[in-house]
């Protein structure tokens, strides 16, 4: 893993974004503050303002809908899976519209963190009843009254479903990051390297030719 290689990769030649070009582009430490900023480069095809705007409008709505699916799953079609898939759809949309930097910028946390927290949630829901001598996954129900919502029923299964939700989002994000964003970055990098190599070679060859042609007489006729 040598992500620390110095040769430049001005992948995104945004003026005034020095951290952009110095940091490793595929790192999850990418800046998070921008939101469909000017350095957008879509995953497919040329940049489309319409798509960007639509995305901007849609993403929060999609995320909200996914939470709804998660919460209502116990009584209606939906649940953790569907919710998670919908939520990740939002991120995929962002990636498609804004390219990999958009994807990285908009993440609440690294996919691995989501996966780990999701797993822990699942395990804890499963394992907590053991501590009080109950079987695994024994469900617990809390009912209480909240000022605004009235009677609220909270099931331990909801925690579990939240775990599922997080894991699904984590999966899709890491797959998109790997198969989409990272590969893109790599190809770009490889192209740059190729170019650099070619130019370096060209320069060396030119230098060699210059050196060879320096002693003028009869050099051109020697077989090389």
């Amino acid at each position: 893993m040598s992500t620390d290689r110095p040769e430049g990769r001005p992948l995104v030649a945004g003026p005034g974004t020095p951290d952009e070009s110095s940091g490793p582009p595929e790192s999850w430490e990418a800046p998070r503050e921008r939101w469909l900023s000017t350095v957008v480069r879509p995953a497919f095809g040329p940049r489309s303002v319409l798509l960007e705007v639509v995305t901007r409008l849609l993403v929060p709505a999609i995320l909200l809908f996914s939470v709804f699916l998660l919460v209502s799953g116990h009584n209606r079609p939906g649940g953790g899976f569907a919710g998670g898939l919908v939520a990740s759809m939002a991120y995929v949309l962002r990636y498609v519209a804004g390219g990999r930097h958009e994807l990285l910028a908009g993440l609440p946390m690294r996919p691995n963190g989501l996966l780990a927290i999701g797993t822990l949630l699942g395990c804890v829901t499963a394992g907590l009843p053991l501590l009080v001598g109950r079987p695994v996954f024994d469900s617990v129900k809390w009912e209480f009254t909240l000022p605004l919502f009235g009677e609220v029923k909270l099931l331990s299964a909801l925690f579990f479903e939240t775990g599922v939700y997080l894991i699904v989002v984590g999966l899709v994000l890491s797959v998109v990051a790997a198969l989409g964003a990272r590969m893109e970055a790599e190809e770009e990098e490889a192209r740059i390297e190729e170019r650099e190599r070619a130019s370096l070679l060209r320069r060396r060859r030119a230098a060699a030719r210059a050196a060879a042609s320096a002693p003028p007489p009869a050099a051109g006729e020697e077989p090389s």
């Binding site: 899976f81 699904v168 999966l171 797959v175 790997a178 198969l179 590969m183």
Partner: peptide
């Protein structure tokens, strides 16, 4: 089937990465 769909999805992505 739902469980199986999701499992297949996860594993297929891996297979895709592998194929790539």
């Amino acid at each position: 089937a739902l469980t199986a769909i999701v499992i297949t999805f996860g594993v297929t992505t891996f297979l895709l990465a592998l194929a790539y």
